[in-house]
Simulated assay, not measured.
Amino acid sequence: MASYHYALTTKARTLLQVQEIQCQYESDIVVDKVSFHVNDGDICSLLGPSGCGKTTILRAIAGFQALTHGNITLRDHCLSQPNLLIAPEQRNIGMVFQDYALFPHLSVKDNICFGLRKQPSAQQNSIAKRLLDLVQLGNVAHRYPHELSGGQQQRVALARALAPSPDLLLLDEPFSNLDAELRKRLSLEVRDILKELHISAILVTHDQQEAFAFSDQVGLLHGGQLQQWDIPFNLYHEPSNRTVADFIGEGCFLPGVIGTETNTITTELGTLMGNRPYPWLPGSPVDVLLRPDDIVLSDFGGISATVEKKVFSGSATLYTLSLPTGSRVEALLPSHRNYAIKETVQITTEADHLIAFSREA
């Protein structure tokens, strides 16, 4: 499949370089030859299902996990390689954990100042006050963690990690213990804070909506390997392989064949015009990825499809539609168009990014 990725045009200085790293537990390789880089000021995510290796990579960057291959550098200083492991406290990397890990016997202010103990009291107080104002907790500085809500505790954990002015902040599923609405709001607030301070960060998450909203760059992991490291737009519209296409977003693969013109694909929904020439010969069998927003209602003509399933989400409804041959597509339609199960609708396609994979793949 040809590459039609959209890239960020601004040139930034590389902060973190992860090169061909491999991690294993006893004889099991859990991270295999993973490479990516993080620029100064970028907020990134490692995304994937449980057991894919994303937390192991985060631990390796933090210094809690040794490498069996490759290396990790921060500002051109090597932190890890097979015969080298700089201690976590010497890396100037902050970390926010899933369970917050606040000290229950310390006040909010003292938790934030914990990593500043070698600095003068006046400087500690100044940093704590600035961070408390930044995370909007100035009025609870003398409370203890058990007196705070989950969202407030997470803000304290963030402020404590930011207090020593780390070069890089690592966040290990920090919002997973919060309810959905608070999780969404707090993740955006944390992003704004990091952007204001110009601090680079890497978030580990299994929630792709969270990763997309939070991050400038997202890396999708599967089976310990990095499938694609890219901006969210490209992960959705230009997946590099079937694994990415299956995991990111929603959609279905529709069988087709390459047309006489190599930028066309003939399918049950008609001949679809792609935005690129495809690398296969005319007549080659392919599978076309159609996202729910690629399928639209047709007022004139179109193909008949039967409603099999529907999921109402407020402003829109996601329909699973069965075509005459039994193939399925999904369509995201305005919720005021309310169709019943087994009702027939007329559909067509409007796909700006027509992604295809070889059937043999």
Rank of each mutant, 00 (worst) to 15 (best):
G223T: 01
G256D: 11
E250I: 00
S284D: 10
Y236S: 05
G223C: 05
D287E: 14
T264F: 10
P239D: 08
V257N: 06
P282Y: 13
L289G: 04
P285S: 14
S315W: 02
P232D: 04
P279G: 08
I295F: 01
R242W: 03
G314T: 06
N263V: 01
G256F: 04
N263T: 03
H237C: 05
E308T: 10
I248H: 11
V296L: 03
D293S: 04
T260P: 01
V288Q: 14
T267Y: 10
E261R: 12
I248S: 05
G249R: 02
I303P: 00
T264I: 02
S284W: 04
T306P: 00
S313I: 11
T262D: 13
P279M: 11
G251Y: 07
L290A: 05
G251E: 02
R291I: 02
G314C: 05
F300M: 08
I248Q: 06
P285W: 12
D293E: 15
V244L: 08
D246G: 06
F253S: 01
V286S: 13
Q225D: 00
S315G: 09
P279Y: 14
P277V: 12
T264Y: 05
A316F: 07
S284K: 08
G251Q: 01
G251H: 03
T243C: 07
V311I: 13
L281W: 08
H237M: 02
P277F: 13
N241Y: 09
Q228G: 07
D230C: 09
N234S: 02
P239C: 09
V288R: 15
F247L: 10
T317P: 01
T243K: 01
I231L: 03
W229A: 04
P292L: 04
V288S: 12
P279S: 09
A305K: 04
N241W: 11
D287K: 15
T306G: 00
N263W: 14
G256Y: 07
Y278S: 08
N263Y: 14
L235D: 06
V286P: 10
D246F: 05
P239A: 09
V286E: 15
A316C: 05
E261F: 13
M273I: 15
R291L: 00
I265Y: 07
A245I: 00
L220G: 11
G249S: 04
V244H: 04
H222K: 03
V288E: 15
D294A: 08
I265Q: 03
A316K: 12
L220F: 14
T262M: 10
P239V: 07
T271C: 12
F247A: 09
E238M: 09
S304E: 12
R291A: 00
V296I: 15
E308S: 13
G223Y: 04
N275E: 10
I265E: 12
T306Q: 09
C252V: 01
R242Q: 14
V296M: 03
H237G: 02
Q225F: 00
S304W: 00
R276Y: 03
V286H: 13
L254N: 03
E238G: 02
L221P: 06
M273Y: 10
H237A: 06
K310T: 13
R276C: 09
F300S: 14
G283A: 08
V296Q: 00
N234A: 07
I303S: 08
G283W: 08
L269P: 05
D246N: 11
T306W: 01
I303K: 12
I265H: 10
F247E: 01
